[in-house]
Every structure is written in structure tokens, then in C-alpha cells.
């Protein structure tokens, strides 16, 4: 199957420092791929390369087979991005934020569709017309996820999506991510949450100092072994 997302020998420099070196991986439709690594490992750099927000020094980031550098508009049209600690506009309500960002993306969604998306992410109806300034972090994250849902793109890029969420919210989020993958979406998630990655990902790539140093794959039954990933993450074993 053609990879929806593909890093091909991707090397990226930031401030004249190599932060990603010769990294290659692919994410197929219906698959959740987690890039796991510590702070400064290069996870977000890889993700931002797929958004065209960073230009590779060599190699390429490809979306649906086309280099992002060559056709940025096409890449962004099929990609929804959920940033870490999604900070939407605090002076706007959930409905207003979604209307604004959907308009930015030139995506059409009526009020009923927006409410369905907010139902799906579990945002209480009574909160939807309140300003985001009064929301908890988890509630804001839900609005951002609803935005990704409403854009209805075949590819999702998630940057530390569960950072700062409580355990119940993390479980709800992981369930949602799995259901989105089951809808045939390709999902690239970068995280340092070993447990969350093992819970939701089909495959895990382990990044260390900009290099892909290992990988794990979900077995036919069950999940990726958390202990094994944790050991590799901590550098006690080679994956």
C-alpha cells in the first residue's frame, strides 16, 4: 500500500544544528505511527517537515507520494494538524473558533456538523458558546481535535496530543485516535508518552538525537509491549 506520509532520508537543520538525520519511515492509511523520543530528539521537527514549516536540508517529506516542498498547498489540503497544547483563541467560543479555523481551511461545516464533532470529542453542550478562556486544558484540546475531525482530512499530524491531559481524558483521546485510524486515516503522532504510544499505535519509531534508532510493531493480537519500549526509550536495550 502507498504510504500516505513518508520521510525519505530526511535531514533537517535548525539554527545550523542537525536535528534530524537521514530519517526514513512511512505511515499507511488506517495506521497510527508514533514517533517516540525524549526532549530534543527531533520528533516535532519531523512533524513540522510534513507541514512544510521546515525545509529539509536533504531527503524529503512526502504526503500522498508528493514532496511537501514541491506542492505545499496540496499537502496542507489533505493534512490536519493538532499542535501541542492547542491554543485556540481564548476570546472566542468553541463554535467561533471552529468557524474561524474552518473558514481558514476553506472547509464547509454547518452548525449541526460542528455539534456532531463536538459530541464525538465529548465537549459538553453548555460549554460550547463560552469563551475558551474559561476552558480547562482538556476541553481546549477537545475543540482542537474537533477541528481536525471537521476538516475531514485523510491524514492527521498530532504533536504531543495528550500532553497535560488527565488520565481519563488520555484514554478518551486514545480511543478517538484509534477510531479515526479505523476510518482509514493515516495518523502520525509524536510523543514522549510511552504508555500512550503503546496503547494506540500500530507502529512506533524511536528517535534519539535526531536519528531513528529503533522500531516496534503491534502484534496480531494485543498491544506493543510497553516494558520493551520503555527499556529501549531509556537506552537499556536496543529495539
Amino acid at each position: 500500500m502507498t504510504a500516505a506520509l513518508e520521510a525519505v532520508n530526511l535531514t533537517v537543520e535548525r539554527s545550523k544544528q542537525t536535528v534530524l538525520l537521514d530519517v526514513s519511515f512511512g505511515v499507511a492509511p488506517g495506521e497510527v505511527y508514533a514517533l517516540l523520543g525524549g526532549n530534543g530528539a527531533g520528533k516535532s521537527t519531523a512533524l513540522l517537515s510534513f507541514l512544510g514549516l521546515l525545509t529539509p536540508k536533504s531527503g524529503s517529506a512526502r504526503v500522498q507520494g508528493r514532496s511537501v516542498t514541491d506542492d505545499l498547498t496540496a499537502a496542507r489540503r489533505v493534512t490536519a494538524y493538532l499542535p501541542e497544547a492547542a491554543t485556540l483563541y481564548e476570546h472566542l467560543s468553541a463554535h467561533e473558533n471552529l468557524a474561524y479555523f474552518l473558514s481558514l481551511a476553506k472547509a464547509a461545516a454547518d452548525r449541526a456538523a460542528v455539534d456532531r464533532a463536538l459530541d464525538r470529542v465529548g465537549l459538553q453542550p453548555e460549554a460550547r458558546d463560552k469563551r475558551l478562556g474559561s476552558y480547562s486544558k482538556g476541553m481546549r484540546q477537545k475543540v482542537a481535535i474537533a477541528l481536525a475531525l471537521l476538516r475531514d482530512t485523510p491524514i492527521l499530524l498530532l504533536d504531543e496530543p495528550t500532553s497535560g491531559l488527565d488520565p481519563v481524558a488520555i484514554d478518551e483521546f486514545n480511543t478517538l485516535v484509534r477510531s479515526l485510524a479505523d476510518d482509514d486515516r493515516a495518523i502520525l503522532m509524536v510523543t514522549h508518552d510511552v504508555y500512550g504510544a503503546c496503547q494506540v499505535a500500530d507502529r512506533i519509531g524511536l528517535l534519539r538525537k535526531g536519528e531513528l534508532v529503533g522500531g516496534f510493531e503491534r502484534p496480531a493480537e494485543g498491544r506493543i509491549d510497553t516494558e520493551a519500549v520503555h527499556a529501549a526509550f531509556a537506552g537499556r536495550t536496543v529495539a
Binding site: L51, L53, R76, P83, T87, L104, A105, L147, R151
Partner: peptide
């Protein structure tokens, strides 16, 4: 932290 989201979302 909105800049990347705006850039990535905007057509």
C-alpha cells in the same frame, strides 16, 4: 503556539 496551526490550517 498558534502560528504553526494557523499556517498549517490556512488554505
Amino acid at each position: 503556539g498558534r502560528y504553526n496551526l494557523l499556517s498549517a490550517t490556512s488554505a
